[in-house]
Amino acid sequence: MFSNLLLAIDGSDHSYRAAKKAIELGKLSGEATVEILYVLDGSKSKSDVLQYGDSDSATRRRKEMLQPFEQLIREANLTYKTTIILAGTPAESIIKHANNGEYDCLIIGSRGLSTVQTMILGSVSHKVMKYVKAPVLMVK
């Protein structure tokens, strides 16, 4: 059964849709735990600190960003847990975290980077699909 779910998000609309699907999946078994996973890229720290002034404000903004996701899961009467990985590289950190735990399914949104960005960065979701051992649900 899908009772232990990992939801990898980046705060985008894609990941909000992924969260909704994760809840649908979790409701199937009645009592499911959804772990929200947010990976903070090292270089994102730089742009966040520049944009919000200092580390404290950047952290607060991130928590604000995570709130709608937590609320969505809470309202669906499922248990949630939030994990933030700092100074990571999105694909690698998600893969490592997913493979270190026992998850029935990983749910991830397709982020829709532009062609150029994908060329340089590589697609996070493709890498994740390839290397995560648990089943992966990619939500478009």
């Binding site: 903070l40 720290s45 600190v49 520049l50 200092d54 952290t59």
Partner: peptide, 14 residues
């Protein structure tokens, strides 16, 4: 000091 803030943020320390 900007870099220090960035490292603070990356490591979640002060």
């Amino acid at each position: 000091l900007l870099t220090a803030s960035i490292v603070d943020d990356m490591t979640d320390t002060e």
